[in-house]
Every structure is written in structure tokens, then in C-alpha cells.
């Protein structure tokens, strides 16, 4: 009975979702935040993964993001250094070189690469609306080519938020970046799927990558 009730409630809530309103603002367009990487950069983060509010796993993640070629390379490993996922994505496709369960499931690997792209690479779509959202923060909205919407906004405290919505306006992903000089110093990602999860990432090290690495050193 309770399960059925919550299922119906969830469906109702989902069906009633709508994009947050953006109020026009004269200077919002020039204030659109863009935290995304501007040159090829390697990041090493600790990643704390949680589901249902409970920490499930702690990992080390390595990401190389290249905005010029829009390529991503990533590796996930245990604290003991055993790599259980390694993949790269280019505009022409994805190459998974190592995937141990549960990362051998195609949807898990794709979802993870989608999350990484969301965090590090600037969307290719143009901003088609900018203004002030709830709580008075600046919000810049893009219509995504693959469907849905993407908001990038800046809170009053300086934190940048990246939020991806479904076509119907349901929040699918919410990323909060650290305020300050390096927004990737601390990253909080909340996935609102049927089975939601969250990632809390803390920067260990970041460095720009010389171009020669691109050739596959």
C-alpha cells in the first residue's frame, strides 16, 4: 500500500515538474558563469559515492578534459590503486579500455561519462535565456540539442550550479562547484534518477596538460 502510494506520488510529482522560472534581468547575460575548463587539464579527485543518503564507496578519479577537441579520458580506481574503469570519449565515440562490474554495464559507463562531460566541458549550445532565478541567483539557460535544458547559475555565495533538466522540466542532474578561484576544488553532484545517487569530489591535484600528451603518450 505504502509503496504504491509513493510510486503514484512520485509519478504525479514528476509529471507536475516544470522548469524553474527565470525573470529577465538587464545585466544577466554578461554575468553568465562559465566554470568549464578552457585548456586541456588533468584532475585527480577523491570521490565519495552515496546512494539513499548513505556513503557506499570511496574512489580516486582521474579525469583529463580537453575543451578544444572535446575529448575526455577518465579512470576510476580503488584506494588500493586497482583500476576498475578506464575510458575515453571523443565526438566520434566512446572507447572503454577497462570496465569491471558494475562499470561493465553500458548504461553505467555512459552515465558516468555523461556526468564527467556535464561537469568539465562547456556545452556546445548557445545560451538562449539569461536572467534571475529563485533566491536571486543568476541563471543562464541552454536548450540542449539532445533534448532537455541546461542551467548554469551562480549563487549569491559564489558557488556555481550546473543543472540539467528533462524535456518536461524535471531536474536530472545538479552539480555544485566550489566558490573561489578553483571551482573544481570541490564538486557535489546529485543524480535524480529512479535510483538516485550523489558524488562528492575533492580535488587532490590539477595540472594543465601539454599538447604532446594528446598524441597518446
Amino acid at each position: 500500500m505504502n509503496v504504491r502510494f509513493f510510486l503514484i506520488l512520485s509519478l504525479l510529482l514528476a509529471s507536475c515538474s516544470s522548469l524553474p522560472e527565470i525573470r529577465p534581468s538587464a545585466d544577466a547575460g554578461s554575468a553568465c558563469p562559465s566554470p568549464f575548463v578552457v585548456q586541456k587539464t588533468r584532475f585527480i579527485h577523491t570521490i565519495e559515492a552515496a546512494a539513499a543518503g548513505e556513503t557506499r564507496s570511496v574512489m580516486i578519479g582521474v579525469t583529463v578534459a580537453d575543451p578544444a577537441s572535446r575529448t575526455l579520458s577518465c579512470a576510476l580506481m580503488s584506494p588500493e590503486g586497482i583500476v576498475f574503469f578506464e575510458a575515453s570519449r571523443t565526438p566520434s565515440g566512446t572507447n572503454i579500455s577497462r570496465a569491471l562490474p558494475p562499470f561493465d554495464a553500458a548504461e553505467v559507463a555512459r552515465g558516468m561519462l555523461d556526468d564527467i562531460e556535464l561537469i568539465f566541458l562547456k556545452p556546445t549550445e548557445e545560451i538562449n535565456r539569461a536572467g534571475v532565478g529563485d533566491s536571486g541567483r543568476t541563471v543562464c539557460r541552454r536548450r540542449l540539442r539532445d533534448g532537455g535544458w541546461l542551467d548554469v547559475g551562480k549563487d549569491r555565495d559564489g558557488r556555481i550550479r550546473i543543472q540539467r533538466y528533462s524535456e518536461g522540466g524535471r531536474l536530472r542532474r545538479s552539480v555544485a562547484l566550489a566558490a573561489g578561484v578553483n571551482p573544481y576544488a570541490a564538486i557535489e553532484l546529485q543524480a535524480s534518477e529512479w535510483t538516485g545517487y550523489s558524488l562528492s569530489m575533492t580535488l587532490i591535484e590539477a595540472e594543465t596538460v601539454p599538447d604532446e600528451i594528446r598524441s597518446g603518450k
Binding site: V62, V64, A75, G81, V83, K217
Partner: peptide, 15 residues
């Protein structure tokens, strides 16, 4: 001291 080497890393990750 553990040093992890991988292609994606420019230098070993030290634990």
C-alpha cells in the same frame, strides 16, 4: 609507499 602508474597519469600517483 605505493606508486600507481597509468597512461592517463603524467607521473605516478603516490599513496
Amino acid at each position: 609507499v605505493q606508486k600507481k602508474s597509468m597512461k592517463i597519469l603524467s607521473k605516478p600517483l603516490v599513496s
